[in-house]
Amino acid sequence: MMMYLKVFAVGGLICAAGQLLLIYTRLGSAKILVLFVTLGVFLSALGLYQPLVDFAGAGATVPLPGFGHLLAKGALEAVREDGLAGALTGGTAAAAGGIAAAIALGYAVALLFTPKTKE
């Protein structure tokens, strides 16, 4: 039960940080997403993100910095296994599942649905 509370709190706080950037800066959502992913990659490479994942599980992996963490973790592991080539393949390979799912589902949804105007 304690774990779920931590997931909720950490995930919520990362999103609230994003909201602060939305309100106080003119970055806009596209740039905030890029910022969060890149931040995730570098924090993870410095070994700072894994502790957060251990602490809060999906609270740290579901927000976009978690996507960056996945990329960085994949790259480092692949370098250990395959050397130089791993630096190129590792990140993308680790994130491939999520990306492919979004592409395939995006295409399927575009086939099935038509956008409606905003209420």
């Binding site: 994003g18 997403l33 927000p63 979004a102 575009a110």
Partner: peptide, 24 residues
């Protein structure tokens, strides 16, 4: 929800699905 639905991976998926639909 603002960033609450933009920052999670679901927001990333929404940012791919919505233009795919829009530009059909």
């Amino acid at each position: 929800a603002g960033a609450g639905s933009i920052v999670p991976i679901t927001g990333f998926a929404n940012s791919m699905v919505s233009p795919a639909m829009e530009f059909k």
